[in-house]
């Protein structure tokens, strides 16, 4: 990270913020829409895990957990990416979510969805692109430089030093 140029860091931070914005607003929009549910999306699943996703949709009790998990998950992951706090965990959670979104609606040859994609995709869709963008961020944890993690690291280090001094 230390070897990166200023412009490279800037672009990576911007990427982190924009992905965060996208996640957070997806979450907020779903939270605002009190009737939103992943039910129909799951029912439309195709591919290897179609059955699992459909069974999830049909399980009313499970949906009572899944729906809030998606809504709040998206918002918290988004805020974490923007603020650069606990971002490592947010990135991992984001990767999981995107993987499942892709897995339930893989754009494979021969798969038709009644809700069409707004573009043309083959094997990889926008979820996969965002997945790999987050993967890039995993390797470049810019939150150590720009973000609350920088402050958190400072306090963490201080706390560790104090503990070390006490033990001595």
């Amino acid at each position: 990270m230390k070897n990166l140029e200023k412009s490279q860091i800037t672009v990576l931070v911007l990427l982190r913020i924009i992905i965060g914005w996208h996640f957070a607003y997806e979450g907020l929009a779903k939270l605002f829409d009190t009737k939103w549910s992943a039910y129909f999306y799951l029912l439309e699943s195709k591919g290897w895990f179609q059955e699992t996703f459909m069974n999830m949709a049909m399980n009313t009790n499970l949906m009572l957990i899944i729906d809030p998990l998606i809504k709040w998950g998206l918002l918290l992951i988004g805020l974490s990416l923007i603020l650069g706090f606990l971002t490592k965990y947010a990135k991992m959670a984001g990767l999981c979510m995107l993987f499942f979104f892709w897995l339930s609606h893989p754009p494979f040859i021969g798969y038709e969805y009644s809700l069409p994609f707004e573009g043309h995709y083959l094997i990889f869709d926008k979820n996969s692109v965002e997945f790999f963008a987050i993967l890039v961020l995993m390797f470049f944890p810019t939150e150590q430089i720009i973000g609350l993690q920088r402050l958190a690291n400072y306090f963490l280090e201080k706390w560790r030093q104090n503990n070390a001094n006490k033990n001595q």
Binding site: I17, F32, G78, L79, I82, G147, R150, L151
Partner: peptide, 19 residues
Amino acid sequence: DLLKSFATLPVVGGLFYKA
């Protein structure tokens, strides 16, 4: 350090405002 730590905070404000 403080500036760099809180640099992205206004973005959250902006997000909620626009949302």
